[in-house]
């Protein structure tokens, strides 16, 4: 497949770099101000080094991406809330041109799922979004294999930053602010970690899961979200007395989405440590399935994008 990659952050660059290993060709890579476009395949390494050296990815206008011939638009621009723009606009243009879309950007599927599905229904292209939930962990494809009707709930840890902070607080008996500063020094937490620690990032992922289970109907405002900012070290100590610990746990069902700090058994499956993520898929006929792994990171998330590309049907091209 010919890939046009929008977004040249960690995920976009990794998709471009790894695409060849998966047998795909990158015909465009764009950041917000420039693009490298070549219908015969761009020199990925050059574009990536330019970006990493602090320049734009290329000399073309990002608009030219849509004018070149591609099979799959990979939308890896930063997630935005509310109208999910400009990501949603990019997806719309690709679907209206009967191209496939693979999302790493959570905005369109968390905030405008029903509109997205309506656009897809009118298009010869399909939309896939494995990379929006749990990075490298195959969450959505597992649900797809089980069929969404046979899945009753999805629970788990889908924010590595919050999980790292809670793990360190419990292990070292330190307070939230202290561990947050440490996480920032280590590069585990961003300079502005708000969406990680207030539960928004995890909530977006569980909203996407609820949309998949219920075939739409949810956006971020439907989720009940609490973060970990008010959990002191002493609460983790008390939990440990009882053989438990506290994790930022999300739950998605057909009835709704909830994210908040919860007590879980200290040695239970959901009490993963460090930045690791885990999901528990509760099925109607087969009990619970657990899948754990790296929930973020450029190459990790890129593998989910490229697996999605591999699942796409061939487009019937008449041009």
């Amino acid at each position: 497949m010919k890939l046009a990659v929008l977004g040249a952050g960690d995920v976009g660059r990794s998709v471009a770099t790894l695409a060849g290993d998966y047998g795909h060709e990158v015909v465009a890579l764009a950041d917000s101000s420039s693009a490298a476009v070549d219908p015969d395949g761009i020199p990925v390494d050059d574009a990536v080094s330019r970006k990493e050296g602090g320049d734009g990815v290329g000399t073309a206008d990002p608009e030219e991406v849509f004018e070149t011939e591609y099979d799959v638009l990979v939308e890896a621009t930063p997630t935005t809330l509310g109208d999910a723009e400009p990501g949603f606009g990019h997806v719309t243009r690709a679907l209206e041109a009967d191209r496939h879309v693979v999302l790493a950007n959570k905005g369109p599927v968390a905030e405008r799922y029903d509109e997205l599905r309506a656009l897809e229904a009118e298009s010869a292209g399909s939309v896939r979004f494995e990379a929006t939930v749990g990075g490298a962990i195959p969450v959505l494809s597992t649900i797809e294999d089980c069929t969404p009707q046979a899945v009753t709930a999805v629970r788990g840890v889908l924010n590595g930053t919050a999980n790292f902070i809670l793990t360190r607080m419990a292990a070292e008996g330190l307070d939230y602010e202290h561990v947050l500063a440490e996480a920032q020094d280590l590069g585990v937490a961003e300079a502005d970690p708000t969406f990680d620690v207030d539960g928004t990032d995890a909530a977006l992922k569980f909203v996407i899961l609820a949309n998949v289970l219920a075939d739409g109907g949810f956006s971020l405002e439907d989720a009940t979200v609490e973060g970990i900012e008010d959990v002191p070290g002493s609460a983790l100590e008390l939990a440990a007395e009882d053989g438990r610990t506290i994790r930022l746990i999300g739950e998605a069902t057909r009835d709704g989405v909830r994210v908040g700090p919860r007590l879980v058994p200290e040695n239970g499956a959901l009490a993963v440590t460090g930045t690791r993520n885990i999901v528990q898929i509760e099925t109607r006929h087969a009990g619970s399935l657990h899948s754990s792994g790296r929930g973020a990171g450029g190459p990790e998330t890129a593998t989910a994008v490229l697996s999605d590309v591999g699942r796409l049907p061939d487009l019937e091209r008449d041009d």
């Binding site: 709930a153 438990r244 528990q280 619970s288």
Partner: peptide, 9 residues
């Protein structure tokens, strides 16, 4: 901070 009910966890 509530316990997580449901599932096998």
């Amino acid at each position: 901070v509530e316990p997580l009910l449901g599932g096998e966890s």
